[in-house]
């Protein structure tokens, strides 16, 4: 079982949380003008790294706040938690010496709703 650091409540067991998938997916500002392809990418296309992954969790059975987590998908090590709206952290600082960081292919933070 994972232990996850909730930015508001501290370290808690995984059973208190729900998983919300990849973080920093940006919803198109005006969906009616984007192409089918762009929309489908927003809906379905996700990174699947072996290594560091930014993802969002909700402390559902606690403070009910959503926040983001840096997790290593290969080891389940959780490197950091940060509040919704905080910018994505640079992955280099968490990278184990013997592995390459897998940087998500998407460009993000251009029109981030979280920071609006």
């Amino acid at each position: 079982m994972l232990q996850i650091h909730c930015p508001y409540c501290g370290l808690r067991d995984e059973t208190e949380f729900t998983f919300g998938g990849q973080a920093h997916i940006v919803r198109p500002t005006n969906p009616s003008v984007v192409s089918d392809r762009e929309w489908v990418e927003y809906l379905y296309i996700r990174d699947n790294p072996k290594g560091l992954h930014l993802e969002r969790w909700q402390h559902r059975f606690g403070c009910r706040q959503w926040f983001n987590v840096v997790r290593d998908t290969a080891t389940h090590q959780i490197h950091a938690s940060y509040s919704m709206g905080e910018p994505r952290p640079s992955l280099e600082q968490f990278c184990p010496a013997d592995t390459q960081p897998l940087v998500p292919s998407k460009k993000v933070d251009e029109v981030s709703h979280e920071q609006a």
């Binding site: 919300g20 919803r27 909700q58 706040q65 959503w66 919704m84 709206g85 709703h113 609006a116």
Partner: peptide
């Protein structure tokens, strides 16, 4: 309720 929370906190905090 959780669905509304997710959109409120993650997409439309403004």
């Amino acid at each position: 309720y959780a669905w509304m929370e997710e959109w409120q906190q993650c997409e439309w905090p403004n």
